[in-house]
Amino acid sequence: MSDMSSPSNSSSSSGNAAGNTSAKTPVLTVDHLTMRFGGLIAIDDLSFHAYRGDITALIGPNGAGKTTVFNCITGFYKPTVGMLTLDRPDTGASFMLERYDDFLINAKAGVSRTFQNIRLFAGMTALENLLVAQHQRLMKASNFTIGGLLSLPGYRHAEEAAIEKAAHWLERIELTDRADDAAGDLPYGDQRRLEIARAMCTDPVLLCLDEPAAGLNPRESADLNALLRDIRKTDDVSILLIEHDMGVVMEISDHIVVLDYGKKIADGTPEEIRGDDAVIAAYLGVEDEEVEAVEKEIGV
């Protein structure tokens, strides 16, 4: 575990990491995260940072535990051991994510996610999908339905603002023409982008994307890259993504964390990862006679 490319592995991780990546503030700090399912250790003592304004990619071979990390961060699983700290850059508040219930992670901490298998509200229109995402704010504006029932001006203004915001996002994902079509009717690539827009409508500080490029053709994949770069540029949001498509990962991410069998095997910029022997070994496998040497190198 004393590998050069894994900067954070102890309680002094923040100092260490800051030295490595030029004084960026972390939004998400994952500290000694372990997740066990019975006898299976899905994640084993994982520590890393996601920095503000960065696109951090979480990669690894199938079954490496990437989605489990996501489920821990977004509250769908409670980690067995470890700490997940989210520092909201906007309010300065700090949240221990492992202590929050599923929906509060989004509502309070501002972590928003998409799913590996798209989970849009298929029977609702694209516009409705984006309005449901703004539920928190609209619910407050409607005085928990009472003001809404009476059509008070406060609620009407909030609803207009919500529609405007939804329209803005539809514009950005180029789906304005299909705003009133059922989400389930949209082509696959559009559904992916709509899901990202829906996640963005919750005003997140950390956007977690679970394989956003899965099943996309090269053109749609390029559109997705453009969208993610655009989001990073214009919105104050940090992105954490799981991806298998190395084209997407290498092109857009600022920082890559590589997992294999629940352990972190590398952590660094795309250039560093590209040349990392442990990563190459994990992805491509190694010759039998090299196994020992590689194992020594990656510390197992």
Binding site: E128, L131, A199
Partner: peptide, 22 residues
């Protein structure tokens, strides 16, 4: 109203609702 849309969203996909802070 938001509550009604949340009901329908719940019918469509409960997990997605949770991920959206509902």
């Amino acid at each position: 109203l938001p509550i009604g849309r949340a009901w329908e969203a719940l019918r469509e996909d409960e997990i997605a609702c949770k991920a959206l802070g509902i």
